[in-house]
Design a protein around this nucleic acid. Structure first.
Lengths: 209, 209
DNA sequence: TTTCCATTTGACCACTCGGTCAACATCCTG
DNA sequence: CAGGATGTTGACCGAGTGGTCAAATGGAAA
């Protein structure tokens, strides 16, 4: 046997023990030292294994990185699915999605960083990022159906970009502007802010009808 | 004589012809090929000059990059200064700032990319980026004085992060989600969206008073 | 003309990277 | 036990990087 299978679409944890160790090591390095530290040598050393195994199981560092990305995405999608389930009018549902989105980001700041990094640098993983971002856009589109016009400046696409911007950028720009942005109290304050923002939009949309 | 002087704070175009050629070449490479392409060799070749001159005039590629960044920042500040000047109530002024901000981004998408890249990757130029971003925050803070509470979820800091997120992210995330995001018609639509968003916030703030 | 020094060059160095591969280890099966 | 398949190693390679520096250049002053 050789190399971990990659079925486009869903993500599956590697059954192989070593492959999994490498994947875990890669994710840890990403969390602790950032994207530049993710070299074949470093990952292998972290996993306590020879460098050659990275290529034996994943073929290239590119592929390894994509697997890590897909793992994050799987979690993100699971998180969103949870939020989209359940009842309530659209205002309630939207607030629930926002809460879930914020919860996820609080526990996966690195994910936000990676995505923003790839997008900003038009990195080699942009195609993968694009595919997943479009999936998420589709979910938002569905949720906002009937609330927003189907085209124009108040379309779902624009609100999707704006909402995800307001959520994500706090976790990347926040720590640059504020010293304690990622501590409990400021995070709670931000959460209140985002909910307020969403309400102001919904109010505006209703009034505009 | 040697190496271009760097006074922290303001930016001055290098008087020396070669230094300026290198700086221009660096900026062009950044625009055309992205950040990874910015190597000492590439810049020198582009400027039609030997590699050694990069280090003769700038000391290191790091310094060269910072000079390019500072040049962008100088333009950004000039653009903002223009927007902040002039009269009108706060709603008018805010809309004028938004327009200026969007104008600037339309013509400096690369700038948005660089900043977001540095922030997302906690790159080596983060200290410089931080210094300038905080300056801009200070301007926003001043403009919103009296409109927003001084603390809490509706403070100027939160609106600053949200507004800049809504503006900037369209230029980075937009092209990933939409195929024609940076063409004239979609850009105009986005502009209308941002103005609508600002109005919804101002309405919300007034109603909440 | 001679001298001097800022300027300019590009070969060179040390280093790190991704990736290859022959050799070796381990294990399962006939 | 024998032997082939599977898994594992790390020395090695080529490419590309930032940075150094002795040597060449050239213009201005004496």
């Amino acid at each position: 046997m050789e190399s971990v299978e990659v079925e486009s679409g869903s993500f599956e944890e590697p059954t192989n023990e070593r492959a999994r160790a490498l994947l875990d090591a890669a994710e840890e390095l990403l969390e602790e030292l950032g994207m530049e530290a993710l070299t074949a040598r470093a990952v292998a050393e972290r996993a306590g294994v020879a460098k050659g195994l990275v290529f034996y199981y994943f073929g290239s560092t590119h592929e390894l990185f994509e697997r890590v990305l897909e793992r994050y995405y799987a979690r993100h999608k699971a998180s969103l699915a949870e939020a989209f389930a359940g009842e309530g009018d659209h205002r309630e549902r939207l607030h629930r999605v926002v809460d879930e989105y914020l919860d996820f980001m609080e526990e996966n700041v690195t994910y936000a960083r990676i995505v923003q990094h790839q997008i900003a640098s038009e990195g080699p993983h942009l195609p993968l990022v694009r595919r997943h971002l479009r999936e998420v856009l589709e979910l938002t589109r569905e949720m906002l159906r009937g609330i927003t016009p189907s085209r124009g400046p108040r379309s779902a696409e624009h609100f999707h970009v704006s909402l995800s911007a307001v959520v994500i950028n706090y976790f990347t720009y926040g720590p640059v502007l504020l010293d304690d942005a990622l501590e409990d109290r400021p995070l709670g304050e931000r959460r209140a802010h985002v909910h307020w923002v969403v309400d102001s939009w919904l109010d505006g949309l209703e009034r505009h009808r």
